[in-house]
Amino acid sequence: MSIQAPSFIQSVGIIIQQEFQRLFFSRQGGLYLFAFIFFWALMLRYVIVNVSNFLAQQGAQTDWSDTVFSTYFNISLYLFPLLCIFIAANQTGADRERGTLRLLLMRTSRDVIFFGRFLAQVCIQYCLILFTATSTLLLGFYYQGFNLSAVSNAFIMASNIALVLLPFIALMALLSASFKSSKQATISAALIWSMASGIITGISHYFPAVEPLKMLIPGMQFSSLSLLEGVEMFSMAYIPLLQTAALLIAGRFIMHRSSV
């Protein structure tokens, strides 16, 4: 039987497709989607709508979309990384524990599994970001009327959320390659993140020269990022991109060395 082995990109595509099937057609994925949509509906109803109503009552002269999307951004900036630590923790860990990774390794490479699962999580999280940004935009239109700058605001905010989320997904890819369960990966992520930020913040208090080391920790630029507006926000994009590259290189190294 002559069968052409799929290329790296094709194999990654097959893995991504499978992860989308898990999200949309498995019980676990359905529960996750339901919980997320329910949570976001509450956010829209009690936070975004209230902000919008408040603006309408005040007869605010400023662009409504600035305030609404600033609220959206500040919620999403913490919501998505937090969700990611739980949801993206199971990229390869459970498969390693069950032995399913052994079945996968007979037909594809460790790189395909590692990067395929990482990119699948990126795609899934980006779909959720798109959903939240679009629903916020549509709600804004419903209450305040169509506004072109709202579309631009939605794009900038959603893109920045997407960027800051990357190192968190990469961190979970690395930890998932290191541990046998998502629980271990999640606990380790919380420990590593809080300990690293605590230690670096503590040291930088006495030795300000080490302050730039904070940029090694995913999310440490959040407070600075919140102060920026519009396209200026992209000026900090290099931080999550570099963090992601470093974490993926380390994760790939671990994936290649680890026993399955």
Partner: peptide, 30 residues
């Protein structure tokens, strides 16, 4: 890849997918 295959000791399938779906997925990867 695809030339060597194995029945590893204690390896289990993913509980979230039917066996047909998982084997189809493996075949696609091959």
């Amino acid at each position: 890849l695809g030339q060597v295959s194995a029945l590893p000791q204690d390896a289990q399938f993913d509980p979230g997918f039917s066996i047909h779906s998982q084997l189809s997925f493996y075949a696609k990867l091959q």
